[in-house]
Design a protein around this nucleic acid. Sequence first.
DNA 1: GCGTCCAGGTCTACC
DNA 2: GGTAGACCTGGACGC
Length: 298
Amino acid sequence: MTMRVSVPTDFRLLPTIFSHGWCSLPPFHVEKNREALELVVALSSNHFAQVRVTQSYRTLIINSNSSKKLGKADRQYVVATVRSCLRIDEDLSGFYDEAKRHARFRWIPKIKAGRLLRAPTVFEDVVKMICTTNCSWALTEIMVENLCSKLGNQFDGKYSFPTPDAIADRSEKFLRKEIRAGYRSPYLLKLSRKIVKKEIDLESWRNSSLPTAELFSEIRSVKGIGPYAAGNILKLLGRYDYLGIDSWCRKRFFEIHKNGRTTSDKVIERFYEPFGTWRGLFFWMDVTKSWYGQKFPL
DNA sequence: GCGTCCAGGTCTACC
DNA sequence: GGTAGACCTGGACGC
């Protein structure tokens, strides 16, 4: 089944796909020709759609393959999920206006970058973010692949991301030994069980009316989420007030702005302060600019 | 092949 | 509020 979606003039699929590492973590998958994003959309219990997204001019082409025919509501859900993952409805005009005022950031609106790929659910984003903490990217990939293949649902050779119930039903020992989540295991377990018991509602964060500082504190209240993880989860919620600095970003900042000389995080924070509520996004685009140079000639 | 060391964020205990 | 040590794993390195 094929669906078509119009996109705004400032949207471009490829910079969005490669905006950060999520595209290489399942259930996301990027085709070898690097022009299509694949994802698995959970429609209902044991009913999934494999979705392939490409762009042709101002139209997204969404091809879906599912175990049973998609009804109207399912098709609408698939489209809404793709729109959300690709941040199509997010208004970045303020960000682009600010970028145009700075010579070193004019490349961003020029190649239509700045939208950060996110998962279909906040739960998936949060679990993946915890899996990025205190380890190499290779270990993050192992943990997420294990989560999908051992706790997700299989459809046509692909796995969905596990539900909170699927994780909550397992033991800490299973998460340690089979998922390789190590000391993160009790954090993932506690979070999943709180969601199942409806003691916390992560999905409400996307439409939260809380001031960003308060939402940051609420995110930080989840065990296993510190300043780095909370700052980056906020970016996936459309709020860019926090930098979410990790060792890789720190190193890139030193290379770009300090000739490799190290400074404190306070210096980094002061550097991006003039960019106001967009500072987290300017920080991220600044340290990842070279990615776009390789893949998308400016 | 084995043992050791290190990097990577967050939590907890302590000052 | 700031700091030290523990947590766990994969990878690099030396033997």
